[in-house]
Design a protein around this nucleic acid. Structure first.
Length: 429
RNA sequence: GGAGAGGUGGCCGAGUGGUCGAUGGCACCUGUCUUGAAAACAGGACGCCCGCAAGGGCGCGCAGGUUCGAAUCCUGUCCUCUCCUCCA
């Protein structure tokens, strides 16, 4: 959520930001009008409350007869306050609903652009392998090796579900553990094992609700929601807390499965394991001071890149343009790995394996995540950031396709071998 | 699932209808003392909203209700703890 003060004090800045983000700048005037109403109703009611409080003080010392005579008068005053408050509450609700659906503003240095076509490629790293045979897509490799079973996934759970078997399952587990260890030992993150279902407050905190509920799985009976990403439970760890400055930055890393309905993506990426309703991800989350958040985003990105480097996967980094930023992000980089065959006959593809974002105080305001800059100082909102490090299925795709051999076997990247009992290849069982 | 107890400020914990935003402790800030620190002593300091300020309003899990007046009484709800039951 944006700071209402920005709407009051710098409406043009907000309008411009919303326009760049592809949102409706007209909301600025709607917000301002509602805010005006709320404040004037509040002032009106508060003047009356001050009067009634004053009167009530003398009532406690008044004689019974005096109380009796003043009772009706005070009650009338009370009733008129209640009426004003009711109107204010209504208006506030409307304002709140509107505010919750207004996206974050892009940081000033985020480039203009309407959609993903205008994202800016910042760099490429790693060498793209030249094959002396035609590389095969991961679903062919996986099925042939007996490590991926798409059909049976569909049988037991429906479309967009799959089964990893044998060394396929082991490979994914190895990647998860290696990535966690890398972030814990090399990058200074603290591992967290969070719940995989959350209450709706948590989803409001991170900005998934109220706007994006239709991408979430929801158990109505218990009002439980399956997490779409570890970002949700981990960012909410300190919701409604007032942190000491010395506790910042907080850096967490968590492995969780992620559950998404993907209603909006029907028909996209239907082959293989690129886009499923359930996928695994290692996620990094940071809570930092406002002063450090730009630098923390850079180091977050570098932590994600280290995973690609370690695995020997060619990758590129994109600066996301203002119009392609997600609802909550103020700035965002995507990391995409190269996969030579994941488009099937169409060939190669860059697969998004990480989004590294800063949210400024947008999530912190929703989640009431504050810190005290100095002992005795006023509390302020922290800044939150997160980035995938990385998303599993696409890493698996990239490993299978980039490390495939002509005979259909897969060479296991060196860093993973200690996590797979020293094995260096996946061959048909 | 059954029975009971409880949710109060950054943390702990008093407070059962009016002078209570709330006693006390810890932590925090300032000062005295000290070479410095600690200790001791004195003072300060809750959060949010409106306001240039003076000042005002709101906040005792949450939502309603009773009352001139609610942390305190009533209803609902969520959560925590203890015991029982069950279980990996």
């Amino acid at each position: 959520m944006l700071d209402i003060r920005l709407f009051r004090e710098q409406p043009d800045t907000v309008r411009e930001g919303l326009r760049r983000a592809g949102a409706d700048p007209g909301d600025v005037d709607r917000v301002r009008a509602l805010d005006e109403q709320v404040r004037s109703l509040k002032t009106e009611a508060e003047a009356k409350k001050a009067a009634i409080n004053q009167a009530n003080k003398s009532m406690s010392k008044a004689s019974p007869e005096e109380r009796e005579t003043r009772r009706a008068e005070l009650r009338a005053l009370g009733d008129s306050i209640a009426e004003i408050d009711a109107r204010r509450t209504d208006t506030e609700k409307t304002l709140q609903t509107l505010m919750l659906e207004i996206p974050n503003l892009p940081l000033a240095h985020v480039p203009d652009g309407a959609d993903e076509h205008e994202n800016v490629e910042l760099r490429r790293e790693g060498t793209i392998r030249r094959f002396d045979f035609k590389p095969r897509p991961h679903w062919e490799l996986g099925e042939a090796l007996g490590i991926l079973d798409l059909e049976r996934g569909v049988k037991i759970s429906g479309s967009r579900f799959y089964v990893l078997k044998g060394l396929g399952a082991a490979l994914q587990r190895a990647v998860i553990t290696w990535m966690l260890d890398l972030h814990i030992e090399q990058h200074g993150y603290t591992e967290v094992y969070p719940p995989f279902v959350v209450k709706q407050e948590a989803l409001y905190g991170t900005g998934n609700l109220p706007k994006f509920g239709d991408n979430l799985y929801h158990d109505v009976e218990e009002d439980f929601w399956l997490v779409p990403t570890a970002e949700v439970p981990v960012t909410n760890l300190h919701r409604d807390e007032l942190l000491e400055a010395s506790a910042l930055p907080m850096k967490y890393v968590a492995y969780t499965p992620c559950f998404r309905r993907e209603k909006m993506s029907a028909g996209r990426d239907v082959r293989g394991i690129k886009r499923g309703h359930q996928f695994d991800k290692v996620e990094m989350v940071k809570l930092v001071t406002p002063q450090s958040s730009d630098a923390e985003l850079e180091s977050l990105l570098s932590d994600a890149e280290d995973v690609c480097r370690g695995l020997g996967l060619p990758y590129r980094v994109l600066q996301i343009c203002a119009g392609d930023l997600s609802f909550t992000a103020a700035n965002k980089y995507d990391v995409e790995v190269y996969a030579p065959a994941s488009k099937g006959e169409e060939g190669e593809e860059w697969l998004e394996v990480s989004s590294c974002s800063t949210f400024g105080d947008f999530q912190a305001r929703r989640a009431n995540l504050r810190y005290r800059p100095e002992p005795g100082a006023k509390p302020e909102f922290v800044h939150t950031l997160n980035g995938s490090g990385l998303a599993l299925p696409r890493v698996i795709i990239a490993i299978l396709e980039n490390y495939q051999n002509e005979d259909g076997s897969i060479t296991i990247p060196e860093v993973l071998r200690p996590y797979m009992h020293g094995r260096d290849r996946i061959i048909r069982a």
